[in-house]
Design a protein around this nucleic acid. Structure first.
Lengths: 232, 232
DNA sequence: CCCTTCAAAACTGTTGACACATTTTTGAGC
DNA sequence: GCTCAAAAATGTGTCAACAGTTTTGAAGGG
């Protein structure tokens, strides 16, 4: 019985606005709503078969987490990050994830650390659990225990990163380097060296930022503008 | 009620929702809406002489910056921070302001640094410019040049801090210590020692956090609960 | 006296219509 | 053909009413 309930999903009646929020998010992830394109309330409302109210609320929420930019009477647009904005995004990640790493080194139990090491090596050798993809950064951030930092990194910033991670694509050689760096960070955590763990995490994030920046050099929204023209 | 006409002396094409947002913020600051109290859409709508729509939007925005907590069909309440939440808030400040301080040490010009030193000493000796109150932390954060960090610290977190700063009150002896610490931070910035500046800022914020925590030990919403009862 | 049950009240979520701002198109004048 | 102002078109902001959910409070049993 409990299994059925858990499988079917949530007991709590999700409001329409919540659902619309998720569906617009999917549109943005799938680049059907690419960076720079306008987000029209009425169009989305008719598309989803609801009134403008819930759509409006969802867009406001997207605006709140910085995924769409909007001014009072102007049309909302999917945010298209400049190189400068991407740099700033990764700087904020450096500050927050670095500090989270330091906290994790203080607060994680030996068992938690060992479990994380095991999962990291399992994911690297290809035999990751079929259920969910392994996300090293999210695991460390959650281990920090600071729910405000967790929400900020796994909420607002995570969505933006996801957009530009998809654009930059997954490069194999980078993946190998990332594994090494992740492993070093975990070693510092196991040694309870918070300062070292923080420093390593900062370097790691900074390198990742440079990598993304190199792949998205300029004029990130030419394709988006053309797609918009074509849609009209 | 016919009192809202006189108050609207603005020419700005500001939307109603924006204005309502500010007015609710004022109510929260003035503790008329104290932490833990419910925020009723209809009551505020009739009070401000507008429909529920703009009020709803303003409350959603307040929810976005974590000033009110709300679940789907439940009443919204002004957030009342637990000791744990306050600790986490100051930890996030440590991470972000520390990093901002490091950036400031790299990017500020000599002239900017000297101006900030002058303003700091002017404010301390009592002859601050009549216009705006001197805010050392905001000045340093803005000098970092990272608009994302600036928005996060001067936007979301600033409101929460302001609520609990008012509750804890201004203690003179703390003020003197703060000046000394601010001065040391600026010295590190002038020496272009980003690591030292960051470390000093972290210690400073951590001390401030402990101070606030000592003044708001437990059950932060007893007065609020009573005020709510009285209002009904 | 306390607990449970159930219906009314209160509140939030949603809708469609209307008002206002912005953008685009039209057309007259040069 | 070009410039600029007025009007249509598009889109957002606001409103009042309706629908669904939670809370309240009183009646009824243990």
């Amino acid at each position: 019985m409990d299994l059925q309930e858990a499988a079917t999903g949530e007991r709590r009646p999700e409001t329409l606005g919540e659902g619309i929020f998720g569906r617009i998010l999917e549109l943005i992830y799938s680049t059907e709503l690419a960076p720079g394109m306008v987000v029209n309330e009425s169009v989305l409302a008719t598309r989803f078969g609801v009134s403008r109210g819930p759509v409006r609320e969802a867009i406001r929420r997207l605006q709140g987490i910085q995924l769409v930019s909007r001014e009072p009477f102007l049309r909302a647009r999917v945010v298209s990050l400049s190189a400068q904005a991407i740099l700033e995004l990764f700087q904020m990640r450096e500050a927050l994830e670095g500090y989270a790493c330091r906290l994790a080194a203080q607060r994680m139990s030996e068992a938690e650390i060992d479990a994380l090491i095991a999962d990291l090596e399992a994911a690297h050798s290809g035999r990751q659990p079929e259920g969910a993809r392994f996300d090293f950064h999210e695991r460390v951030v959650r281990a920090s225990g600071n729910s405000r930092i967790i929400d900020s990194l796994c909420g607002d910033l995570y969505h933006l990163l996801r957009i530009y991670r998809r654009i930059s694509g997954a490069v194999p050689e980078r993946k190998e380097l990332a594994f090494t760096e992740h492993w070093q960070i975990l070693r510092a955590i196991k040694m309870r060296d918070g300062a070292l763990a923080e420093s390593l995490m900062r370097s790691h994030v900074e390198r990742a930022g440079r990598h993304v920046l190199a792949q998205v050099p300029e004029t990130p929204s030419i394709a988006a503008a053309e797609a918009e023209k074509r849609a009209s």
